[in-house]
Simulated scan of single mutants.
Amino acid sequence: MQNTRNVLTPDNLGLLQSIAETGSFAAAARQLGLVPSALTYRVRQIEDALDVLLFDRSARQARPTDAGLELLREGRRLLEDVDAIANRVRRVATGWEPQLTLSVDGVISPTTMLELVEAFYALEPPTRLKWRDGILSGTAEALTSGHADLAIGVTEGASNVAGLQAAPIGELRFIFVVAPHHPLARLPEPISDSQLRAHRLIAVADSARQSQVTMGILPGQDVFTVDNMRAKIQAQLRGLGAGFLPEPMVRPYVQAGHLVARAVARPPRNVRMCYQWGGSGSSVPGRALQWWLGQLQSQATRQALLENHHHF
């Protein structure tokens, strides 16, 4: 008995499709330029290898059996997959990457990112996109460790790996906010470190594996650590703790009175954000990365990435 892989070739699957479409072995043989005996022999080889009957030969027409119908269905799907793979390979050969991974920090607007993803897919590229969430130094680490091709929302100067290229997105202002019913909402301003230390801080965990960066935690302070910015906002809305948050992200909550901005004794926190790509051994950017870098050159896009947090 032949190995099934040897008989379930694209050629043989196409031959079976021809028999089903023309309705007879003789007509399929004419269409494929084969002598009828050669076509019949190939069908028998497939049937022997699978140990099934694919066509009912008792009628004038070659009618597929239930097993034959199933093979024709799956065969059609396999042939479409083969064509799709061939098209993808041809397009990748024109300079498109097979996959592009984006490492996106939690302070970046998901709405604007999805608008960019939508515009990218409108090109019908052969490139598969992957989006990784990052926090603090983890956003850049995904790039430097080879797990991402483009990091969006990196703190300027956070990583200086050889060959890494960077360009600015803009400055992000962090403000100290609490729920209106939180005790810190009633203290006179500016609130001192000793007063802050007596209350729980809500912190976002660094997504880096190698180094754990923490921001604004005072010695001996109780900390509730969450995994992302959205969870941090929700925790602070409930009054579970206090902390600094990007002003554009909390602007709607402050305007609605659900959070209160408070002046603290420590210096204001303004963070310069950038995007990074490349790295050691990196070659000329592929067409997908070039497209993303082109979009990020727009001042309006960069501003929207930091500001557009009103449509969760």
Rank of each mutant, 00 (worst) to 15 (best):
S159E: 00
T214R: 08
Q165T: 11
S194V: 11
H199N: 07
I233W: 05
N160C: 06
A205Y: 03
V154L: 06
A242Y: 04
S145M: 02
A166C: 12
A235K: 08
P180E: 05
I233E: 12
V161H: 13
R238A: 09
L237H: 12
V213T: 13
A151Y: 09
A142S: 14
A148C: 08
G170H: 13
H199Y: 05
H182A: 02
R209H: 08
S211R: 15
V250P: 08
G153A: 08
I169F: 08
Q212I: 11
T144C: 00
P219M: 06
V177E: 05
E189S: 14
I202C: 12
Q236L: 02
G241S: 09
Q212S: 03
L218N: 10
D206H: 04
V177M: 05
T144H: 01
S207C: 05
A231N: 11
I217R: 11
P168W: 00
I217C: 05
A235Y: 08
E141M: 06
L136G: 07
G153W: 05
G243E: 10
V177H: 03
D149Y: 11
A235C: 09
R209A: 07
T214K: 04
D206P: 03
V250A: 06
A151D: 08
P180H: 09
I152D: 10
T155L: 09
S145P: 02
V250I: 14
T139S: 05
S137Y: 04
M229P: 09
R209L: 01
L187A: 14
K232D: 02
P248D: 12
P188W: 07
Q236W: 01
Q234P: 03
A151I: 03
T214Y: 00
S159R: 15
L143R: 13
S211W: 06
V154P: 14
A205K: 15
L201H: 12
G170F: 09
V204Q: 11
R238D: 06
P180Q: 09
